[in-house]
């Protein structure tokens, strides 16, 4: 998704840093090798970025300027709820939903491009007040959840499964909004996806709430 954007902006002092939130050994490797990206592809086994940037899902993005300042804080990177309408037998999306999903992604990529080319005068670049207003800040429970997740993953790494499970359950309880924690801890199906019946039940339980939070950008569904 980001390769075309990155290539089109060569020579514009721009870098994509795509980070895989993957605790399991080498789970991200085949994807990265297949994509063979020109941008930086990093691995975050401990979900450090989720802790640092208060992230709850993938894909989420942060826009950072030349001075290391946050221009747009953590937000969904243009994903739309399309998957919720997917036929689970055929894998097909209704045409209208597929079109909306595609348009949302395109809108997001175009917004990034606009910012890279125009800088602060881009309509999509927040000023400092707007950037602060769009921040979501962690609670004490969220901070504890990240520490418990870290401990659980370390114990898993040592084969101490039962003890690990206690910490991972604690992490999920303390931070129920985090799909990152929930899905990383959930047993993957044969495709390596944490998308079994319990996942769909949890998505269903969202009701009218979004799985991918709305991105505050004109023309975003």
């Amino acid at each position: 998704m980001w390769q075309g954007l990155f290539e089109g902006l060569q020579g514009r002092n721009f870098m994509v840093v795509a980070v895989a939130m993957d605790s399991r050994d080498d789970a991200a490797r085949p994807w990265i090798e297949a994509a063979n990206p020109g941008y930086l592809a990093l691995i975050d086994r401990h979900h450090l970025l989720a802790d640092l940037y208060n992230m709850v899902n993938v894909p989420q993005a942060v826009w950072i300027d030349e001075h290391g300042r946050i221009v747009r804080p953590t937000e969904v990177a243009g994903s739309y709820e399309g998957f919720r309408w997917r036929d689970r037998n055929t894998g097909k999306l209704p045409d209208e939903i597929a079109a909306t999903t595609k348009a949302a992604k395109l809108r997001y990529v175009e917004a990034v491009r606009d910012w890279v080319l125009k800088g602060p005068s881009s309509a999509f670049a927040f000023d400092e007040a707007a950037a602060r207003a769009h921040l979501s800040l962690p609670s004490a429970d969220v901070a504890l959840a990240h520490a418990a997740f870290r401990m659980g993953q370390a114990l898993l790494g040592e084969g101490r499964i039962e003890e690990a499970q206690g910490f991972l359950d604690e992490a999920r309880r303390r931070h129920p909004e985090s799909w990152n924690i929930w899905r990383q801890c959930y047993k993957p199906n044969e495709l390596g996806l944490a998308a079994g019946p319990e996942f769909w039940e949890r998505v269903q339980a969202l009701g009218d709430k979004r799985y991918y939070a709305h991105v505050d950008m004109p023309e975003m569904p």
Partner: peptide, 24 residues
């Protein structure tokens, strides 16, 4: 993937799109 460590601060002077994904 090669185990080489990169810091965000190494990219000072460039705009960065930091974006996450996952295999799961």
């Amino acid at each position: 993937l090669a185990g080489r460590v990169h810091a965000l601060s190494d990219l000072h002077g460039r705009k960065v799109l930091l974006v996450t994904w996952a295999s799961w």
